[in-house]
């Protein structure tokens, strides 16, 4: 009943053609090199870009169907979206941002406390660090109580230590809330840590060879053993 998507779109450099699903409460990671079309795929899921063809359903509800001319706007998809860079509203405080679309104001304080932002609640985004801004962006997305959380390389601009902390925090709260998550990254380590299943995308297509190549014994040592240590990992093709 989770997410099911068949997406086709012609871009300037290649055509995107992917078919995947993400079971309810699980994390699907779209991984691939930079410029592979991952962001376009997640933007199509969000309704920010329109596919040329295909169909998207979530919990059995059709949110896009090219044949039937159905294309729900982002506002009606009830999802959370965390952008690659910091997209907090600069005129609002951290609390104002987190509660921007909150359904339950009490939940905002809980989330700010969980992500260690409560003491920064009255500061503006430019007065806090990059990691804190991205934590706030996650709070903002979660406070809407979304059915599906989409994250587009949310930690790519952060240092390694902050990244690790955020990944763990995200994983924990996702499990607590039973959220379905689609996570985009070009970092295979990040993908292996977060994913319940992985969708490798290269040049707009699912590319099993690319993932096998990068996780094969001949690949750098720090990549391969992690893949082996993750027995629950399912590769989606």
């Amino acid at each position: 009943m989770g997410l099911r998507a068949i997406l086709r779109k012609r871009t300037e450099y290649f055509s995107i053609d992917v078919d995947f699903s993400c079971p309810e409460g699980k994390t699907l990671v779209l991984v691939g090199p930079s410029g592979a079309g991952k962001t376009t795929v997640i933007r199509m899921l969000a309704g920010l870009d329109r596919p040329d063809d295909g169909r998207i359903t979530f919990r059995g509800k059709v949110i896009f169907d090219a044949d039937r001319g159905i294309c729900l706007p982002p506002q009606k998809r009830n999802l959370g979206y965390v952008f690659q860079d910091f997209t907090l509203f600069p005129h609002l405080t951290i609390h104002g941002n987190a509660s921007f679309a909150a359904k339950d104001k009490k939940d905002v304080d809980h989330l700010l406390s969980y992500f260690g932002l409560l003491h920064l609640a009255d500061r503006k985004p430019h007065q806090v660090s990059g990691g804190e801004r991205q934590r706030c962006a996650i709070c903002q997305a979660l406070a809407r109580r979304p059915d599906l959380l989409l994250l587009d390389e949310p930690f790519s601009a952060l240092d390694v230590v902050t990244r690790r902390g955020l990944r763990a925090e995200l994983k924990k709260i996702k499990d607590e809330r039973g959220l379905s998550v689609v996570f985009v990254t070009h970092d295979i380590h990040e993908a292996l840590f977060i994913a319940d299943s992985i969708l490798p995308i290269v040049d707009g297509k699912v590319d099993r060879d690319w993932l096998e190549q990068i996780t094969s014994p001949s690949s750098p040592r720090d990549v391969q053993p992690r893949a082996v240590r993750e027995p629950k990992l399912a590769l989606v093709y």
């Binding site: 969000a46 309704g47 920010l48 506002q75 009830n78 979206y81």
Partner: peptide, 27 residues
């Protein structure tokens, strides 16, 4: 104004009119 602010408002459920008043005007 960064176009992603407007997109962020949309994915957070704001209509274009609400986005105009709550995001575009204050910024």
């Amino acid at each position: 104004i960064d176009p992603r602010l407007r997109e962020n408002a949309y994915v957070l459920g704001l209509s274009p009119v609400a986005t105009f008043f709550r995001v575009m005007i204050p910024n």
